[in-house]
């Protein structure tokens, strides 16, 4: 069973070339692994958005119950623009937190934007949770697109000057309630 590898009278150059290539491959692989090792898992939560520090895209229209709604008219207040849908699980979870937040901070205005939802189920959803803020329908998803919404729930905090200061992906839980309260108390947590 002994195996003979054919010895070839070959230049020692070839062995050297192989080692150089091996070193190069090794270095590239090491750099590659270093890059992978330092990447964070795609994050959930407060997220980067090109809109941060930019004027908030306008929201103008009739609310689900027919009242006029305008984001611009709320200048001077912090506004939380909340994209939601009755079919979305995390929206159900976040609703009580939002209601509590709105009750505790009358100076914070909330505008709901229904995402791919019928007006009746959207207003039914809000009423079931005791939400008192106005919500607009967004039948062709234009508002959602102008804010850069991927999927509900997503929320955008707009400061009194009308600038977007935070984007929150996912449901608003207690930690996120606290970070919104930080903004309201003037500190602004980053």
């Amino acid at each position: 069973m002994s195996e003979v590898t054919t010895p070839v009278e070959s230049t020692p150059r070839r062995g050297r070339t192989l080692r150089i290539v091996a070193v190069v491959v090794g270095v590239i692989a090491a750099a590659f692994i270093a890059v992978l090792a330092t990447r964070q898992p795609t994050e959930v939560g407060q997220a980067a958005s090109p809109l941060l520090g930019q004027p908030a895209p306008q929201i103008d229209g009739a609310s689900l119950d027919g009242q006029p709604v305008s984001l611009a008219s709320l200048q001077g207040h912090y506004v939380l623009v909340n994209f939601f849908a009755s079919w979305c699980g995390p929206c159900h979870t976040e609703l009580p937190n939002l209601v509590a937040l709105a009750r505790a901070h009358p100076d914070l205005k909330v505008i709901g934007v229904a995402f791919n939802d019928s007006s009746t189920s959207a207003s039914g959803f809000l009423a079931s949770g005791g939400a008192e803020w106005p919500a607009v329908a967004d039948p062709d998803e234009h508002i959602a697109l102008s804010y850069g919404v991927r999927a509900p729930p997503e929320s955008y905090l707009v400061d009194p000057e009308g600038m977007v200061v935070a984007k929150i992906i996912g449901g608003i839980d207690q930690t996120r309630v606290r970070s919104i309260e930080d903004y309201l108390s003037g500190g602004g947590s980053r």
């Binding site: 070839r14 062995g15 080692r19 091996a22 090794g26 692989a29």
Partner: peptide
């Protein structure tokens, strides 16, 4: 990767 590259480089002479 290290094992693969290292072994091939080590055995370079036999692999000609």
């Amino acid at each position: 990767v290290a094992a693969g590259v290292g072994l091939i480089a080590w055995r370079g002479d036999l692999l000609r």
